[in-house]
Design a protein around this nucleic acid. Structure first.
Length: 314
RNA sequence: CGCGGGGUAGAGCAGUUGGCAGCUCGCCAGGCCCAUAACCUGGAGGCCGCCGGUUCAAAUCCGGCCCCCGCAA
């Protein structure tokens, strides 16, 4: 019972793990190598940390390669003679020349319903835009960025309390569920990848730290989505005007308060906790984290920080 | 050796010229009130992160260690 497909898995973070596991568990796939980003210094002690895909691959005795630049690694890939390459959240641009190497091409697991939200921040974008659903797209890669023809799509509901973090988990699991059947359906089941409708496409560029900063002039409805979209990274953050302390807003009430009597960016007491005035409407803050402290619920926070009522954020 | 904040009652925080360990919330008991999450009275609850040092005396000063967090990546 020989495995059918010599497969190279390319990916880096936690998101890719369910897909990797699914392929390892599927007897049709022989994972001949895992390619991932080099170890990076991470955490407070700046400890060299291997990416999750490396850890998982080594656990399964799969050879791991961590080229600094994958476009300088194509010869080695060619020598491995893969039948198919699966890419999931690799965090490097895959060069066009690589697409031709495997017999059955390169297959990508993407965290949105393409052609919507091509790009790295697809999950955040779906929340920020207030979508009711999102999903996973399995596609055949082509030269563009997330522009390849679609093999299979599966959607899930975005719930009102979903954050980028919670969706990330759900979508990564969903990817693991559908990746193997999708590839098999493509290679031997006669699925013909369907070109994307470029007129419906949108682009969700990679987020930078600064983009988590809250603009209190925006209306409360937008900021409610913003907080969920930025959680847990880069986090929706702001600063106190007086002490210039970093304040992360980690959870806000889903209901928009029809209150406009305070200065924009001002904290005020509400239901034993705190709320903040936005450009239009106000938001109840459920949880937040001040620099140097643990995240806490605002009613608890207030017990030791009465003086925060009325202060301004910027 | 990357930079910085922090660990004190169940929770959130004050408290360093060393001198009886405090506040707010919660909890328990009682009271007030038509009633209450409001108000009043009383009460329980602490090895002040751990180890050692200095001192008549350490939450506080000195040395070492553990843990949490922000920046940075």
């Amino acid at each position: 019972m020989a495995k059918k497909y010599r497969t190279i898995f390319i990916g880096t973070p936690e998101f890719a793990i369910p897909s990797l596991r699914a392929l390892i568990a599927d007897s049709d796939f022989e994972i001949i190598a895992a390619i991932t980003q080099p170890d990076k210094k991470a955490g407070r002690k700046r400890i060299l940390t291997p990416p999750p895909v490396k850890v998982e691959a080594e656990k399964n005795n799969i050879p791991v390669f961590q080229p600094e630049k994958i476009f300088l690694f194509l010869e080695e890939i060619k020598k491995m003679d893969p039948d198919v390459i699966v890419v999931a959240a690799y965090a490097q641009i895959v060069p066009k020349d690589m697409l031709e190497i495997p017999k059955h091409g390169c297959i990508n697991v993407h965290g949105s319903l393409l052609p919507k939200y091509r790009g790295a921040s697809c999950i955040q974008a779906s929340i920020l835009n207030g979508d009711k659903e999102t999903g996973i797209t399995i596609m055949k890669m082509d030269a563009g960025l997330d522009t390849g023809p679609i093999i299979h799509k599966e959607s899930i509901e975005i719930e009102e309390h979903d954050t980028a973090g919670s969706l990330y988990g759900k979508l990564s699991k969903l990817g693991g569920k559908i990746i193997a059947p999708a590839i098999e359906g493509y290679i031997e089941g006669g699925i013909v990848p369907e070109p994307q409708d470029d007129s419906q496409s949108s682009y969700a560029p990679i987020l930078k730290k600064d983009q988590g900063r809250i603009d209190w002039e925006k209306d409360a409805g937008y900021l409610e989505k913003f907080v969920r979209a930025m959680h847990p990274w880069p986090g929706a953050w702001t600063k106190t005007r007086s002490e210039n302390k970093l304040l992360k807003i980690t959870r806000v009430g889903h209901k928009i308060l029809n209150i406009n009597e305070h200065t924009v960016g001002q904290l005020f007491a509400r239901n034993n906790g705190l709320a903040v005035q936005c450009g239009k409407g106000a938001l109840e803050i459920k949880k937040m984290q001040i620099e140097g402290r643990n995240e806490m619920e605002t009613d608890k926070f207030l017990i030791g920080h009465r003086d925060y009522v009325g202060i301004l954020l910027k």
